[in-house]
Simulated scan of single mutants.
Amino acid sequence: MQLEVDNIATIRGRVQVLHRVSLHVSPGEVVALLGPNGAGKSTLLGTLMGLYSTPTGRVLYGGQDITRLPMHLRVARGVAIAPERRQLFPHLTVEDNLRLGAFHRRRTSVRWETELQAVWDLFPGLVKHRRRLAGWLSGGEQQMVSIGRALMVRPGLLLLDEPSLGLAPVIVREVFDALSRLRREGLTILLVEQNIHYALELASRAYVLSQGQIVFEGSRDEAHKALQQGYLTVG
Rank of each mutant, 00 (worst) to 15 (best):
V5L: 08
I11P: 03
R12C: 15
L18Q: 00
R20Q: 15
E29C: 01
V30Y: 13
V30D: 09
L33T: 00
L33S: 03
A39T: 08
G40Y: 06
M49Q: 12
L51M: 12
L51C: 11
L51I: 12
S53W: 01
T54S: 15
R58H: 13
Q64R: 15
R68A: 04
L69I: 03
R74L: 00
V75L: 13
V79I: 14
A82W: 11
A82K: 11
R85A: 14
Q87T: 13
Q87S: 14
F89M: 11
L100R: 11
G101A: 10
A102K: 01
R105E: 13
S109D: 15
W112L: 13
E113H: 09
L116P: 00
D121Q: 08
V127Y: 15
H129S: 13
R130D: 14
R131W: 10
R132A: 14
A134H: 00
Q142Y: 06
I147E: 05
R149D: 02
A150K: 02
M152T: 14
P155S: 09
L157M: 04
D161Q: 06
D161V: 02
A168V: 08
R173M: 12
V175S: 02
F176D: 01
L182H: 05
E185C: 02
L191S: 04
E201K: 14
G218K: 03
S219G: 10
E222L: 02
K225H: 15
K225C: 11
A226T: 04
Y231W: 13
G235K: 06
